[in-house]
Design a binder for these strands. Structure first.
Lengths: 215, 215
DNA sequence: CCGACTTTGTGCAAACGTTCACAAGGGCGT
DNA sequence: ACGCCCTTGTGAACGTTTGCACAAAGTCGG
């Protein structure tokens, strides 16, 4: 139980549920760091992130033993460890396809640039939009997908185009080498194995809310 | 097992995981209806929604027995039943607080109006924005929250304001009578019991993607 | 140096969700 | 009317996630 080649996390996968909460912890940790708080207990951090303290401890234990018993966690050190686990110590160029309202919102989104993400390019198919400047980026033609992905080494793409063309854009992104896709179009994307898709569907969220509101 | 006051669904709650998938099924069903397909098997519908067919059948069984063995499900009938369960047979006025990029995108979002949701009002605190027209709605002052919620009977609110003021807006919405909140601000909202909050955080989704992209 | 106190990290059990596999049950051709 | 075929609905097994409760381990005062 003592000799390991690498950290616990690398040997056996971290549960998906834990991964989904790490960004939440990270955000809470940054808020603490901004207030110059150097150390935090699992109880406090859990409250800030809106979760149970036992869950938080178990989640963090998957990354390793980065706390000090009787004291808590060092904020800066934990920020570094969580960031490293999430792969945020490197820079992630992201290509946004679709410069409509959602694409613009995404390009302008503050939280975007703050955590290692960078808009590599903003693409659209509308000749009236191509060439205009949004959030400091000159909008390029959607036909540039392949060279943008190749030139900038993009692995993450955001799809903010109408539903009917989303699958086509997705196929081109995947063919160009993108392995992770954030899909805002209300369609189920069909992708080959190894490609990761996360969907954000405002309509679905509203419908879930409606269910609860109706009781 | 035969005498019931109401349907199965009302007697014992439908699992949250199932609720979250019903809008997905509904979307697939509408797509089938658009293609004039009258009947569908669990296998086909599951493929269209991107889930396992056993899961789909179990999910639908929570609403009741609306299929026909050996045949499948009647598309229109199932649309009605799922819509009813989600509470989409009624009209839901939604108030959007924050007319920034995200608020505009939301107000312009097509899938918004299509499923029984309606923008009751679009609010902002910026005097330069108040009075302008976005997606057919004249932007009103954020101080009108209380009267908009009261006058229009709003139960659902979307928060697209900066993180620092989100909790304050949330408090006012709740005090005014809103029971369901869609939060786009990157903060954990503190709400009294009985109020339902769903969060959409683009940054969190990207970080999860980064983890998988990094392997 | 020791003992009291605090907080982490984790075994364990319960709750929840998913998937399999098949009996139950309806349609359809004969 | 009957038997075959198809698909639903569901019991049971399995895997994942949560939460409790506590031992392990560190700090700190004396």
């Amino acid at each position: 139980m003592s000799r390991r080649i690498r950290s616990d996390s690398s040997l056996q996968g971290i549960p998906e549920a834990t991964i989904a909460r790490l960004p939440l912890y990270l955000r809470a940790l940054y808020a603490l760091a901004d207030r110059d708080i150097a150390s935090v207990s699992s109880e406090e951090l859990a409250a800030a992130a809106g979760v149970n303290s036992a869950k938080l401890r178990k989640d963090l234990s998957h990354l390793g033993s980065y706390g000090t018993r009787g004291v808590g966690y060092d904020v800066d050190y934990l920020i570094y460890q969580v960031s490293r686990e999430l792969g945020l110590t490197q820079d992630w160029p992201v290509v946004i396809v679709g410069a409509g309202n959602l694409g613009r919102a995404l390009a302008n989104y503050g939280g975007f640039a703050s955590r290692g993400f960078r808009v590599a390019a903003l693409l659209d198919s509308d000749p009236l939009v191509i060439g205009s400047v949004i959030a400091g980026h000159r909008v390029r033609a959607v036909d540039d997908i392949e060279c943008v992905v190749a030139d900038c080494g993009v692995m993450i793409g955001a799809i903010t185009v109408p539903a009917v063309v989303a699958q086509g854009i997705c196929d081109r992104l995947v063919a160009a080498g993108v392995t992770s896709i954030l899909n805002f179009a209300p369609v189920v994307l069909d992708v080959p194995g190894g490609v990761d898709v996360r969907k954000v569907d405002l309509s679905i969220e509203l419908q879930i809310l409606a269910f609860h509101a109706q009781r």
